[in-house]
Nucleic acid binder design. Sequence first.
DNA 1: GTAGCACCTGGAGTAAACTCCAGGTCAAGA
DNA 2: TCTTGACCTGGAGTTTACTCCAGGTGCTAC
Lengths: 135, 135
Amino acid sequence: MTIAEVSQKYDISADTLRYYERIGLIPPVPRTPGGIRDYDEESCGWIELMKCMRKAGVQIEALIEYVALFQKGDVTIDARKELLMEQRNQLVDRMAEMQESLDRLNDKIERYEQGLMTKEKLLQRMKQEREKGQS
Amino acid sequence: MTIAEVSQKYDISADTLRYYERIGLIPPVPRTPGGIRDYDEESCGWIELMKCMRKAGVQIEALIEYVALFQKGDVTIDARKELLMEQRNQLVDRMAEMQESLDRLNDKIERYEQGLMTKEKLLQRMKQEREKGQS
DNA sequence: GTAGCACCTGGAGTAAACTCCAGGTCAAGA
DNA sequence: TCTTGACCTGGAGTTTACTCCAGGTGCTAC
């Protein structure tokens, strides 16, 4: 597969694909004799994995380290597992924070829906109460 | 409250607090006659809200717009609600992506746990099979 | 009233993750 | 063979969200 095809398949720019390879986020992609990238299934697998991880906010740094460990072979299995668990924990934490934010957003939206959200409205109401009381 | 106190309270640097105000992520903070920031409860509320939203990955751009709308008063209530809903939807989408990534991480970790994960191991096993067959 | 520390502003610098570009190769069609 | 369009590399530029700094001001304690 050419870089253009892979780019289209995963909706990642060719520049980004080259960049990912350059920094070691994916292992070296096979080349034609002319030096042009010829992505195989394995390369695509890496790309898909990284797309998934990156969308979830996993740091490129950590992913590069994972790939480096992977390329060092079986002796790094424990280290790789460790790394994945660390990333999973961070992910779980981030999701919890997002849930908090989501609850809050839903709350705010609901209050807007009921038309009693804004401080302005509340202040206005209080003012009206005061005026009523005085009259 | 001084900026140092607020900084400590929310674990946000004074520089960041000034930056947030400068770019309009929070409305202007009240000042002492000498020009020094004197955060009141309302300011703190904004800061806390923004801390929560930022941690969840909500773009500063959108939050600035929300604050701007807020400061324009009641006529912007619909627009604000719209904005919040848009952000909520994005948040929900991101969380779904993260869940996907989390599932995948858990899957990978589990396979490492069972010691049958690595392609190396699989290849090795296949090689052994072949050798056995040949001998 | 002056030393010293926290605070102020405007602007420059930084980190992460791309994104773009110049100048040069590769390869398929006319 | 020549053209043309996709691809190559190394390096510079961009965006987002801070973070740092220089030069100056405001309080508080001596």
